[in-house]
Write a protein that binds this DNA or RNA. Structure first.
Lengths: 145, 145
DNA sequence: CCATTTTGTTATCAAATGATAAGTAATGGA
DNA sequence: TCCATTACTTATCATTTGATAACAAAATGG
């Protein structure tokens, strides 16, 4: 197996993934939410509990900028902060009820488009896809550099 | 096969892909090239010949903004424009020698990091990865919505 | 030949994002 | 107790990106 060849396939693949995710999410237009703010909400939703520092690390933005965007989201009542009882410097960020609601709506609409995308897939296809995702996750995308 | 389940896996997967591509490309720091400009150069490199309109469509940016960024890249001698002999409104954009050079360097550095990523993969693993990429490409990421 | 459409450009403004300095409060270790 | 570190905030500025209007040149189609 030629690694160079695999690299080229990998590049084309990631480009396609970016393209498709863009198409799946582009019609998600929560009123006046910027892309970065959406990313933050998404990250909070899929994680259980997160601190500003974790958001900052995972979304590759500075802590001051993270803090700024979090405050905007807090002002709009999409998130709330709870300080850790043990280490009071730490703040756990989570979605409010409003935040949960808009994110569920967003995910529902993305899911709709995803289902459209795979509407012609047979049960066998779905198994193949599931398996392929597992393989890639395990052998490429969930390793640390 | 539960489609809801598959959707959740899909969401986690795409997030991981974005994460990894970010890590692979973050150390590619061509001097004073903005992310959008890099995207444009990348798109020109992987495509054979492109017009501003195609770039605009594929990278989801307006034609005026595309034109602006192309001009900046042209000023810096990374790209050049050739007008179509048949339809003189059309301009084909391609990399200059300088542009080719910086993009090759960029891709080499990304490839290095990619090879690091899969350094512990056996030959069997590589085959599996190759196959998984094919499956996903065919059954999910290269369909039109 | 004339109206319309396509392709691209320039200019301008607003908004989003990034970078950095400075500060607070809590923690932890010498 | 004191100092360094960690977690986070506020403020400010520069840059990047997005949106829109107005224009020009070439093509297309009656």
């Amino acid at each position: 197996m030629d690694k160079k060849e695999l690299f080229n396939q990998f590049v084309a693949f990631t480009a396609a993934v970016h393209q498709v995710t863009h198409e799946l999410t582009q019609n998600v237009k929560i009123d006046n939410i910027t892309p970065v703010q959406y990313k933050i909400l998404e990250y909070i939703k899929v994680s259980q509990s997160v601190t500003p520092t974790e958001i900052s690390d995972c979304l590759h933005m500075s802590l001051p900028n993270t803090s700024r965007e979090l405050r905007k989201l807090q002002d709009r009542k999409f998130i709330k902060k709870i300080s850790d009882t043990e280490d009071r410097r730490k703040h756990y960020v989570c979605l409010t009820e409003d935040g949960e609601k808009i994110m569920e709506e967003a995910f529902d609409s993305i899911e709709d488009r995803f289902l459209q995308l795979i509407q012609h897939a047979s049960n066998n296809d779905l198994e193949d896809i599931h398996h392929a995702l597992n393989i890639l996750d395990e052998k490429v995308f969930n390793l640390k550099l």
